[in-house]
Design a binder for these strands. Structure first.
Length: 925
RNA sequence: GCGGAUGUGGCGAAAUUGGUAGACGCACUAGACUUAGGAUCUAGCGCCGCGAGGCAUGGGGGUUCGAGUCCCUCCAUCCGCACCA
């Protein structure tokens, strides 16, 4: 019998869904809402391979399932369309990135539509669309016009800060601001010029301009954020990255550090992902304290998590970049220190990483005084101290810190033990034991000692309890072309926002996409890149653009109200859809997108623009699909190939073979010979009639000939098979290689479904007879399993349940309408095209996507008897058929009376009989 | 080093609360029907053993009548962070 005509069916229904706008979501509905979202893709030139749709298929199944359950489902798709690859391509070819991007998006949408996703395309967003980035710019303006008040623990409009400054100055202000910002009285503030007031406000704004140490990638001509750098190389392109001080726009994400950590507690995300975010934010609790400099008025402030070890401090260490270094170096030491600082600054990030174990440093010649003992302690410079963390200065406690210990050993500095315990010849850094040699801390456990030390520091005004975070403020500029322009112009040095009515600030045309000769970003090439301000004068506009993550930090709100020209998202729409109920995407965004999106959501919440402060309630990370390359073994130096299991008998070299020439690891020799001209004369040593290939799991790439596209699979088996097979591969979260072996099983299943509805000659064969108990049991088992499994987001097991059901119905030759109707609905989230076709053939009105999901009836699942396993002392002996409605007591009696059991007992009385109804009977002798 | 995860047949994998381990699928084997097909159906398929039976969920130990599941310990693989004071 021939296969069902999936091509015809799938085209028909894809057209129909498009024409009828079947999956359009309603912004006001009496039904409960459900928002399912995929991380929108960057449309790369390579198109989708078979790994990309894994998460999309899962989310599509959930959204269709929720539709069947009577939810008003929002399931949109869009494109994260600004980004480096299109721009790199533009630099090489001169083609405008907008054109490349548009073409790639077309390709992506075409590929997606072939898979039959239930997207509401009317809500599509593209981050490079001016109608969209207008609002990205608008949110940036809000960030610029806001500051963070610690007492209220939220961001507030900058006007409120100005009012406070005018009335009472900044002395009582508890706000997040740049390190080292001076306090002003109201009088001082009011006397400042407009320029100086603006400069001062910049220290408080949520979006601010600052000289910061950045990751500079010379090859890409731009700065990169920490999560865009991997092991000292750029994530995109793998170019070397160095540290450099530059003036940059930054967002004050650090103000939200605590809330970003706390918020994780209530999210339904994997513990692994939460942990990654917690580590990235890197909260550490401790204290800051001042060490007076010997012979000077000033004090050096350090951060420590171990104030309990204060009496074990034997020296101090400064980061080479610390501003103290220059001030404290004595004339005798100047040459050595200068030399050291220069070397340290020349060492790239990569060198530092590869030389972790090298201990280096130099003495400044100066001393600080111990705040309690007044003992002088030498001040050293060492590159194990990071300028960017804490205060850039460390109180070194060699006895209880591994790095301080190594340093002390190398430079022969004293080591003083102040916590009892641990070995003598290494640092004891566990937070356990009692304080010794520590004056007022003696005898206290570490935990108490920390508290007591902070108490004393505060009482004597030497220091203060403090929490430090590893996370840095997010750099928000890229010296690139293909991104959102910042809506900022400059009056001299003072950045000002363009007027809201002039948004969007459209990305200008440029002649080339490269930086200018003088090293300015590409936008410097734009003609007339100036802003005509309200005073009628023209001012230069900001030449950097926003980073790739700007547009993706709020797109999930735009879907709620995608066409709104008046607001980024209306309050009504947001109040209705609230936040994303289920978000599916890769774990690689853990420290980038997922953190920034949470940050922006909290910010928008603070300003009262939305009413949720977490964007993604539940998050699932789909695993990566790796490639599975096929290898043919060539006998070295010949044109002769040997089947995989015989290769050890020869000296061979493996060769990548296009996976389309291989099925179940068997190479199609005809196709192989035609594949490349040099292989036309190839010889083969086969196993029987078959030539087997070996395989290797590696990244999917063209050069390895292991790329499988959804289009390939759809061509051969159809979209429904692709969808089901991707789910059947294993748990969604798990990474796994793509292996087309086994797809036949799913394809056969769908054909079996087709044959359930049709007779041997392909005619419609559904009958109206009433169903038998067996048939009812089979279908209700499937309802129960599919329902339960989808509820807990397991996608592989329901496919199995459907297979079992169809096998049983086939064996029963069941063609009964009421059974098959249910089956069709159960199937519809997985294989929507086939289900839709069968639904129509069944004469049902409307689309199967809106059919109510069936509920199972427990009474069909019960049987009158059950085969109980009977075990003696935990070992299985036999099975006995017993009535299901028997009480545990009756079962016990029946089992003990049975002849074989009497034989095992051999006259002995059992100590215990355990009956688990429906499960097992265990006799303990 | 710190943190997280995973480990079950030839392969992908099931086993939601401790209760017949290996469902379902692939591959493989045998058979049926066949004017050969990459179709369909039936049966078999963890390991050892002719058999009864024994052994099996990374290794070792423990709790329990009973452990893939709970506890301890060790090993392996993958991922994240990594001079963060």
């Amino acid at each position: 019998m021939s296969n069902y005509d999936f091509r015809k069916i799938e085209n028909k229904w894809q057209d129909r869904w498009k024409k009828d706008q079947t999956f359009r979501a309603d912004n006001s509905s009496k039904k409960p809402k459900y928002y399912v979202l995929d991380m929108f893709p960057y449309p790369s030139g390579a198109g989708l391979h078979v790994g990309h749709p894994l998460g999309y298929i899962a989310s599509d199944i959930v959204s269709r399932f929720k539709m069947n359950q009577g939810f008003n489902v929002l399931h949109p798709m869009g494109f994260d369309a600004f980004g480096l690859p299109a721009e790199q391509y533009a630099i090489q070819t001169g083609q405008h990135p907008a054109i490349t991007t548009k073409n790639n998006i077309e390709r992506y949408k075409d590929q997606m539509n072939k898979i039959g996703f239930a997207y509401d395309w009317s809500r599509e967003v593209q981050t490079c669309d001016p109608a969209y980035y207008k609002w990205t710019q608008w949110i940036f303006m809000k960030l610029f016009d806001s500051w963070y008040e610690r007492d209220a623990d939220k961001a507030r409009p900058i006007d409120a800060l100005i009012t406070i400054l005018e009335k009472s100055g900044s002395e009582r202000l508890n706000a997040v601001c740049d390190e080292g910002t001076d306090h002003l009285t109201a009088e001082q503030w009011n006397e400042l010029t407009w320029e100086d007031q603006q400069k001062y406000l910049l220290k408080y704004r949520m979006a601010f301009l600052a000289e910061t140490s950045v990751n500079w990638c010379a090859a890409l001509g731009t700065v990169l954020s920490n999560d865009e750098v991997k092991d000292g190389y750029s994530e995109r392109g793998g170019h070397p990255v160095e540290r450099k001080k530059m003036m940059q726009w930054c967002l004050r994400i650090t103000a939200y550090a605590e809330r970003l950590i706390k918020g994780l507690d209530h999210l339904d995300w994997s513990e692994a992902l939460k942990e990654i975010q917690r580590n990235w934010i890197g909260r550490s609790q401790g204290g800051e304290l001042d060490f007076p400099i010997q012979g000077k008025e000033e004090r050096i402030r350090v951060f420590t998590t171990r104030p309990d070890t204060i009496f074990g401090v034997t020296f101090m260490t400064l980061a080479p970049e610390s501003e103290w270094v220059d001030k404290l170096t004595t004339p005798e030491q100047r040459t050595a220190v200068k030399q050291y600082v220069k070397e340290a600054s020349n060492r790239s990030e990569r060198d530092r990483l590869s030389e972790v174990k090298r201990v280096t440093g130099v003495f400044t010649g100066s001393y600080v005084l111990h705040p309690f003992t007044q003992k002088p302690l030498p001040i050293w410079v060492a590159d194990y101290v990071l300028a960017g963390y804490g205060t850039g200065a460390v109180m070194a406690v060699p006895a209880h810190d591994t790095r301080d210990f190594a340093f002390a050993k190398k430079f022969n500095l004293p080591i003083l033990k102040v916590i009892d315990g641990g070995p003598e010849d290494e640092a004891y850094d566990a937070k356990e034991g009692k304080a010794i040699n520590s004056d007022f801390l003696n005898g206290l456990e570490v935990k108490e000692a920390i508290a007591r030390a902070i108490e004393r520091l505060e009482a004597q005004e030497i220091g203060i309890g403090k929490i430090n975070y590893r996370i840095r403020d997010a750099i928000f500029t890229r010296q690139r072309y293909w991104g959102e322009p910042l809506p900022v112009y400059f009056k001299g040095e003072i950045p000002c926002l363009v007027s809201e009515k002039d948004l969007p600030l459209i990305l200008p045309e440029v002649d080339k996409y490269l930086p200018t000769e003088s090293g300015e970003p590409p936008l410097a090439r734009a003609k007339n890149w100036v802003y005509k301000a309200e005073d009628g004068k023209e001012y230069p506009l900001e030449k950097s653009t926003m980073p790739g993550w700007a547009g993706s930090s709020w797109y999930f709100f735009r879907y709620m109200d995608a066409d709104n020209a008046q607001a980024f998202c209306s309050k009504d729409a947001q109040a209705y859809w609230e936040s994303v109920d289920l978000y599916i995407g890769g774990a690689e965004h853990a420290t980038g997108h997922l953190l920034y999106a949470r940050f922006w959501t909290k910010f928008l919440y603070d300003l009262g623009l939305i009413n949720t402060d977490e964007p993604f309630k539940k998050l699932v990370n789909q695993g990566m699909i790796q490639g599975r390359s096929s290898l043919a073994y060539r006998i070295t130096g010949t044109n002769k190939f040997v089947s995989a299991n015989l290769k050890d008998q020869y000296e061979t070299s493996p060769m990548h073979v296009d996976v389309s020439l291989v099925k179940d690891d068997v190479l199609d020799l005809e196709k192989f010979r035609k594949w490349r001209p040099d292989l036309a004369e190839a010889d083969f040593i086969t196993e029987g009639s078959k030539f087997y290939c070996g395989f290797e799991v590696e990244k999917m790439s063209k050069s390895r000939f292991n790329v499988v596209t959804p289009d390939d699979i759809i061509e051969g088996y159809g979209a429904d098979t692709l969808r089901m097979y991707e789910m059947f591969l294993g748990p969604l979260e798990q990474s796994k290689p793509w292996n087309t072996n086994g797809i036949d099983g799913v394809f056969k299943f769908l054909n079996k479904v087709w044959r359930l509805f049709h007779n041997e000659t392909g005619e419609w064969a559904v009958v109206d007879d009433s169903a038998s108990p067996q048939e009812l049991k089979s279908i209700h088992t499937a309802i129960k399993k599919v329902n339960e499994d989808l509820q807990r987001l397991a996608f592989n097991t329901p496919v199995s349940s459907l297979m079992i059901c169809v096998n049983e119905l086939t064996a029963l030759k069941c063609r009964k309408r009421n059974i098959l109707e249910i089956l069709t609905v159960l199937l519809s989230p997985f294989a929507p095209h086939l289900a839709e076709e069968l639904w129509e053939c069944l004469g049902q009105k409307g689309t199967v996507a809106r059919a109510p999901f069936p509920k199972h009836d427990e009474s069909f699942l019960l049987e009158s008897t059950y085969e109980y396993p009977v075990s003696v002392n935990g070992k299985l002996r036999t099975k006995m058929d017993l009535a299901l409605d028997m009480s545990p007591g009756d079962i016990e009696k029946a089992v003990l009376d049975a002849e074989p059991v009497q034989k095992w007992l051999d006259g002995k009385t059992p100590k215990k009989v355990i009956v688990v109804p429906g499960k097992i009977v265990n006799i303990v002798v």
